[in-house]
Write a protein that binds this DNA or RNA. Structure first.
Length: 318
DNA sequence: AATTGGTCCAACCGCCCGAAG
DNA sequence: GCTTCGGGCGGTTGGACCAAT
């Protein structure tokens, strides 16, 4: 018995490198007629001298219907920056919130354009914090950003648990398989990505209302005094697509029930701070302190995004 | 015109994970 | 429990292109 993984296909005799228009036609014609049941078997059936993996990549990144290519709009740029601040280098997750853009294209755009833009603005593109010695940031701001990072990581940890729990029962890789002659499947949206919607809900509700928003078993809620997140500033962006999710729930007993509002009624609040337990990183902060912190970060992000807006490509900033 | 260096991006590679047997 | 398989993901690479010298 062979140990370990076998290669996805025999490498000998298979073509590599750029795809020709003829190959694209072949692949398209085959998928349009038969769909894609098994990428491993597809090349032989389609008459292509390619690895199945290569076919899948070509399809998902270029030939799949509905893909938008070319210049990124300013709003798309802002969305990517905000999503990257929240999600890190999880390109597929970021791509799921940018309709028609592929993870590969977003990754390339980030590496070739946005990283440089942020660097020139004095922002560390990986941490989204002001660089040391940069006139852009202050010591106080750095401290605030660190606090924010704590909260973000807390949220991620919860979301990972959440998504692992639900994905086992709701998400199947075959769920999105393209049936013959049918429209392409919707982009895959891991349940954890609903954090963005939650994020938006949490920070954009009117202050007077105590609003519940999702996130995992602990969930969280916006305190009446909290009104804006660093990452919520442009979530009205038309290009930023928050996917409606079937996974939101009122309790663990009804996971999977559709909830068009995307809002979870029941949240856990810290009995002392009355802050959502989601914000464990802030548990030692008073609501007043927290409000001030979030205000500072709003300004911080506004300054970044405003710079994006006012600085055309080719300007000294970029 | 030739060379060099930088940029961009399509495609590949290796790793990981879940499903199936 | 284990192995194998299929597919997804993120990091990296190679070559085309372009501007500067």
């Amino acid at each position: 018995m062979r140990m370990g993984r076998s290669p996805c296909c025999e490498k000998v005799g298979l073509k590599k490198g750029p795809w020709t228009p003829e190959e694209d036609k072949q692949l398209l014609a085959y998928i349009e007629q038969y769909g894609y049941g098994s990428w491993r078997d597809l090349p032989a059936k389609a008459g292509l001298q390619r690895c199945g993996k290569s076919c899948r990549l070509r399809w998902s990144n270029y030939l799949r219907p509905g893909i938008k290519r070319g210049n990124f709009s300013l709003q798309e740029e802002q969305s990517i920056i905000q999503l990257h601040a929240l999600l890190g280098n999880r390109w597929s997750a970021i791509a799921s919130h940018l309709p028609k853009r592929t993870d590969n294209e977003i990754k390339n755009y980030w590496n070739t354009h946005l990283k440089k833009k942020l660097s020139k603005m004095g922002i560390d593109p990986m941490t989204h914090r002001p660089k040391i010695n940069s006139s852009f940031g202050s010591a106080a701001n750095l401290s605030h950003m660190a606090q924010w990072e704590i909260a973000r990581l807390e949220a991620e940890a919860r979301l990972v648990r959440h998504s692992k729990f639900i994905s086992s029962s709701l998400i199947s890789p075959h769920h999105f398989r393209l049936p013959t002659n049918n429209p392409p499947p919707p982009p895959q949206v891991p349940p954890s990505l609903d954090v963005l919607k939650a994020w938006q809900e949490m920070w954009t509700k009117p202050p007077r209302t105590r609003v519940s928003s999702l996130v995992d078993d602990g969930a969280f809620v916006s305190n009446a005094t909290l009104h804006q997140s660093p990452t919520s500033l442009n979530f009205s962006d038309q290009n930023l697509c928050f996917m409606e999710t079937p996974y939101v729930r009122e309790s663990t007993s009804n996971i999977g029930n559709p909830n068009p509002t995307g809002i979870i009624p029941h949240v856990a609040l810290d009995p002392l701070s009355e802050l959502p337990t989601f914000i464990h990183g802030f548990s030692e902060l008073s609501p007043e302190t927290l409000t001030g912190y979030l205000d500072d970060n709003s300004r911080y992000w506004n300054s970044i995004l405003n710079n994006l807006v006012v600085s055309p490509v080719g300007s000294p900033v970029f």
